[in-house]
């Protein structure tokens, strides 16, 4: 975030680096000081312990494996939601009657939090990957659907009418005119959906882990719960939290980057 000022004079560059790092550095320093006044139990959390735990967890492969497992679920769940959300969104956005039919159902499911689906998912699929997947898909579905509908209903009527005048078949108009015109909205929906999905997978894995005695769900969410429930290793929990944050940030940046590459005219 601070590297953008490279072209600016040196003094302001250092100023902005200072501004960006001063308060976080002070906070970490205060944390370290506070931790040193506590008992010298190696499990009590402090920045240095968190750093060494991070190295340990990465070098034994557990952290990377769990993160990849969670990410894999998010990607698959997001893919399912993308297909369902965009297809239904195109139909609802372009056809008034379909919209009227599905709108009440969609709106009544929207206030039901993804985690409320968890008990049902456990009943249906057990405590493995499918239960987590269904929650991720459910969570990612709504932002995708709502934004697709919004994007499609905002498509310039003139474009559609022009295509109709030229005798383009309906299905082709949908694929070649409406879909590209709604793409910015769909991309926004994708970014929001991916963020929600990443939160939902942590919640799902935590919940499954908490409610099935460790269970076989795996993933970084469950890893956190195991550290809480079995070893009370706060450093490891903090490491997992940081990884969760970094992955969320990377997902967000990746989607912004793709948005920028696909639609540079919007920036």
């Amino acid at each position: 975030m601070t590297t953008r000022t490279a072209a600016a004079p040196n003094r302001t560059h250092w100023n902005s680096v200072l501004e960006a790092t001063l308060v976080p550095a002070l906070l970490v320093f205060a944390w370290q000081l506070w931790a040193m006044t506590l008992a010298t139990d190696p499990r009590s959390p402090s920045p240095t312990h968190v750093a060494t735990t991070f190295v340990d967890l990465v070098s034994n492969g557990g952290l990377i494996g769990a993160t990849l497992q969670s990410l894999g679920r998010v990607v698959v769940g997001f893919g399912l939601a993308l297909v369902c959300g965009v297809v239904l969104g195109l139909l609802m956005g372009s056809n008034r009657r379909i919209r009227d039919i599905f709108d009440p159902i969609v709106e009544s499911f929207r206030p039901i939090a993804p985690m409320a689906i968890l008990p049902v998912a456990i009943l249906w699929f057990g405590t493995g990957t499918p239960a987590a997947l269904s929650i991720v898909t459910y969570a990612a579905f709504f932002p995708l659907l709502v934004n697709t509908v919004h994007g499609v209903s905002r498509v310039d009527r003139k474009l559609v009418l022009a295509a109709m005048t030229m005798g383009v078949p309906r299905a082709r108009i949908l694929a070649r005119v409406i879909l590209p015109a709604a793409l910015p909205s769909i991309m926004l929906g994708s970014r929001l959906a991916m963020g929600v999905a990443w939160t939902a997978i942590i919640a799902a894995e935590l919940g499954v882990g908490a409610k099935s005695g460790g269970g076989g769900s795996g993933g970084i969410g469950q890893m956190m719960f195991v550290f809480y429930a079995y070893s009370i290793d706060l450093n490891a929990i903090v490491v997992c939290m940081i990884v969760v944050g970094v992955v969320a940030l990377l997902i967000d940046r990746l989607f912004r980057f793709v948005e920028y590459r696909l639609m540079p005219w919007r920036h």
Binding site: M1, E19, A20, T21, V23, P24, L27, W198, T199, I202, A203, L206, G221, M224, F225, F227, Y228, I237, C240, M241, I242, V244, G245, V246, A248, L249, D252
Partner: peptide, 16 residues
């Protein structure tokens, strides 16, 4: 910067 550091960590991840 502090806000931007904390914000990506979802509330759910604070549960343990």
């Amino acid at each position: 910067p502090v806000v931007e550091l904390l914000r990506p960590i979802s509330g759910i991840a604070w549960i343990p």
